[in-house]
Amino acid sequence: MDPTTEVNERLQEHYQRVWMARQYFAGSAYPWDRRGEVYLRYGEPDYRSRSGRAPGVMSVAVQRVKDELYAQLYTRSPRGALVGTVFPVRSSRAMFADSFNLMGRNDADSHTMGDGYLPVTSGEDNSLVPWESWVYVTVGGGMEITFTDEMGSGHFNFAPIPLRQPIGMRSIARIQENAPETFYMQAVGEMPEQYRPWWQTRELEFYYDVADARGGYFMTQVDVAYGLPIDVEKIGRGDLTLSMALYDSVTNRAFRTRRTVVRNDTLSDSNAMLTDLLTLPVPPGTYHLTVKAENVSANRVSLLQQVLAVESYGDSELQMSDPVLAAQIDETDVDDSFRRKNLRVLPLPTRAFLVGQEMGLYFEVYN
């Protein structure tokens, strides 16, 4: 959930997954089969293939997961790219024997029940049952889950473990260790669910500093100063949206504000800093502070959180606001977000000064 918005994105994602599971992964099961169960926990897989439809393009991360699983299970090189399921599914025995140059053998080992199981590759698909292969690269260190419809009823379950060791596989113990249901149960123990926000982040680098001061009508003014490097490699091109939220878990109230900053892309000095300030008047208390900087056009976002104690500034005793480290303090009559009384206070969110640079310190005293 992103506290800087009024929408519960995680709850929305859950409802969407429920709808997808009911719509596409129910078959003859209610409310859904094993595919729906996995989808509810982990969402859309990074790669999905199924009987008669195996995409030939996959990411390097997906390929790594498949290659590692194949090396765990098999002693021979695959016949073609691993576009289908690496875990063996029930297949034609005659074609299986041919693929390992065993055609014509008539001994018991070549005709056991376990011999009729094979992976599905771009060069070989002898499967006798409908199957689906899902790959998640960030769950369980990377895993493939294979589902099969053994009865042809539309009800998919985890692919079963062969009753006997198929020819070309390392051992029945390896098959059991890498079975889809085993993988899944281990993953659930380590990561019960996975939620990936819509922005699919590349990190956006920024700094922030927070200070409070006396506000009006018994409120306290909370200022969050943002500092973003003017470097397209760090924050991308395009406009930026800065957001902050203060959430009070006792009263269940949230205070939010945001602003879009139009950047001047002609500034390219990597040492330059874009500075802005967001302000919220809130009652004194303890809050969960969330600050976010986002560049939607560049698919970059960063969200930082901390617990924040907001002071109460009465008028019965001598008090001082939080001090603000400033890069520059000048007299001004321009009314902008940096104005404090008759001064323009430009904060320095990095809290870092160059050698020889003057340091400003601004604070207010009340009595």
Rank of each mutant, 00 (worst) to 15 (best):
R344W: 06
Q194C: 02
P166R: 06
P180R: 06
L280M: 07
V18F: 09
S77M: 07
G52W: 07
L267K: 11
E294Q: 05
G152Y: 07
R344Q: 14
M113N: 14
S316F: 08
N252A: 12
D276F: 12
P284W: 07
L325V: 01
P55M: 01
T332V: 09
A81T: 12
S171R: 08
V62A: 05
N178L: 05
N367F: 13
N126I: 05
G168Y: 03
F206M: 02
M191Q: 15
S316R: 12
N101A: 14
V224D: 03
V120H: 00
G227P: 08
A94M: 10
N295R: 02
I329G: 06
I329D: 08
R50H: 13
M95C: 07
V60C: 02
G142L: 07
L361D: 03
Y313H: 04
V262L: 08
I235Y: 07
M359T: 07
V282R: 10
I235M: 01
V139W: 05
Y39P: 03
I161V: 14
Y39C: 02
I161L: 11
D336F: 09
Y39G: 02
D223L: 11
V282S: 06
T121E: 07
K234Y: 03
N126Y: 13
A81K: 15
D276R: 07
Y74M: 05
S51Q: 13
P78C: 08
S127E: 08
A54C: 13
G80C: 05
E124A: 12
Y313L: 09
L289R: 01
K66R: 12
D231I: 06
S28P: 03
Q194D: 05
G142I: 09
Q305S: 14
T85L: 04
A211D: 10
Q16A: 12
G215V: 02
Y136I: 12
Y208K: 04
I329Q: 11
V83G: 06
E181H: 09
V301R: 01
R174F: 11
Y217G: 02
T290R: 01
R196P: 00
L128F: 01
A173V: 14
Y47N: 05
G216A: 11
Q221R: 04
E358M: 09
A71Y: 00
D46G: 10
G116E: 14
N106T: 14
Y226I: 10
Y24K: 10
R351C: 11
Q63L: 13
S59C: 06
R79M: 13
N252W: 03
Q165K: 15
R174P: 00
Q186Y: 01
S337H: 10
Y47P: 05
L280P: 02
Y136G: 08
L277T: 02
Y207V: 02
S49D: 09
R253V: 11
N157E: 15
D115L: 13
G215F: 04
D125V: 04
Y247T: 15
R48Q: 05
R258V: 01
V86R: 04
R170P: 03
S122K: 01
R35L: 09
A254T: 15
E68G: 00
F363Y: 15
N264G: 10
S99M: 10
V120L: 04
S122D: 11
Y313I: 04
V60T: 14
I230V: 12
P119G: 06
V139L: 06
M20V: 12
R64Y: 01
S28H: 01
N295A: 03
V57N: 03
A21R: 06
A61Q: 14
T350L: 01
R164F: 13
Y24G: 05
V334S: 10
S153Q: 12
